[in-house]
Amino acid sequence: MERRAYYRNGWMPWLLLAPQLILVLVFFYWPTTQALYWAFSLEQPWGGGNTWVGFDNFLAIFRDREYWGTVLRSAFYAIVSTGLSMAVALTLAAFVDRSLKGTRIFQSIYVWPYAIAAPAAGVAFRFIFAPESGLIGSVNQIWPGIWDPATNGIHALAMVIVCHAWLGIGYNFIFFLAALQMIPRSISEAGAMDGARPFQRLIDLQLPLIAPTAFFLLIMNLISSFTDSFGLIDVMTEGGPIGQTEVMVYKIYFDGFKGLDYSGAAAQSIVLMLLVIGLTFVQFKWVERRVHYN
């Protein structure tokens, strides 16, 4: 017999839900409505009211070549960081899943990066990749200028991508390991008896069976790459050199808070939101067709 909770007072459930509803309304829906209003109006930098301009803010950013460069840079950043993070996490999970000596220690060590705040990791990686000290400094002494993220945009973008991918390895590792451990051992043992090597068993047997987990992680990592890269870039490069590490989310901050173009930044935030929604829809529409849940 199913048991259900009944409240004698009709207002009690709403009273219990009120704190969460207030948080959602104040910190999610209210800023979203404000951004929509600012995106279709001209907000004065120092106040003084708004002027309705329709789609002029969107047309202005779409006509800006630098903005399209930022979009392409964001897409490249998301694809490379997602692929790198998931590939490394899957490799580590495959080694730990084999139950080799010391794997329990590694299970806890691999998760640690996920607990580190992005700005703190950015500061650490900024010192690790500093061209004047450490291993990189020694290499630069042999080949001067081979690595200089302060002046080379490709080097700076690579440094940020590696840091972002490293932060996501722990999160991806947890899900991949859990998915691999759910696969019956008899399947891997049967593949081993047929002469398949561990890498071949991973590609032909295990990876198709954990496709739902990989699909979930693909969506989460891409969304994170588009929306959660601000802290890293602000600490490590501040969008430089010459805007070569400026992605969409950082450009919104830079144009809005430093350039005082609130309306343009609001329009960019709406475009970013629609891009993430569209990307998720495309993945569910086409990529999910290759995923088998049974």
Results as ranks from 00 to 15, higher is better:
residue 221 N to R: 13
residue 148 D to W: 01
residue 288 E to W: 04
residue 66 E to N: 11
residue 200 Q to A: 08
residue 191 G to A: 13
residue 267 A to P: 00
residue 263 S to R: 07
residue 256 G to F: 10
residue 172 N to H: 12
residue 236 M to N: 02
residue 225 S to C: 14
residue 15 L to C: 11
residue 78 A to E: 01
residue 192 A to I: 08
residue 125 F to E: 06
residue 22 I to W: 08
residue 99 S to M: 10
residue 32 T to M: 12
residue 248 M to L: 13
residue 144 P to N: 07
residue 187 I to W: 09
residue 38 W to Q: 12
residue 41 S to Y: 04
residue 294 N to D: 08
residue 69 G to W: 02
residue 94 A to K: 01
residue 81 S to T: 09
residue 94 A to D: 12
residue 275 L to G: 12
residue 95 F to D: 03
residue 182 M to R: 14
residue 176 F to G: 00
residue 228 D to K: 09
residue 273 M to F: 15
residue 285 K to L: 02
residue 239 G to V: 07
residue 37 Y to R: 12
residue 69 G to C: 10
residue 181 Q to W: 03
residue 151 T to H: 13
residue 120 A to D: 01
residue 63 R to S: 10
residue 38 W to V: 07
residue 256 G to Y: 06
residue 75 A to G: 06
residue 261 D to M: 07
residue 218 L to M: 13
residue 162 V to D: 01
residue 241 P to S: 08
residue 23 L to N: 09
residue 88 V to T: 12
residue 223 I to Q: 12
residue 276 V to D: 13
residue 215 F to V: 04
residue 73 R to E: 08
residue 69 G to P: 04
residue 60 A to S: 14
residue 114 Y to S: 08
residue 226 F to N: 02
residue 203 I to Y: 15
residue 239 G to Y: 10
residue 251 K to C: 01
residue 227 T to G: 10
residue 147 W to E: 03
residue 211 A to V: 06
residue 157 L to G: 02
residue 115 A to C: 09
residue 18 A to L: 14
residue 153 G to C: 04
residue 168 G to C: 06
residue 205 L to F: 07
residue 74 S to P: 11
residue 158 A to Q: 10
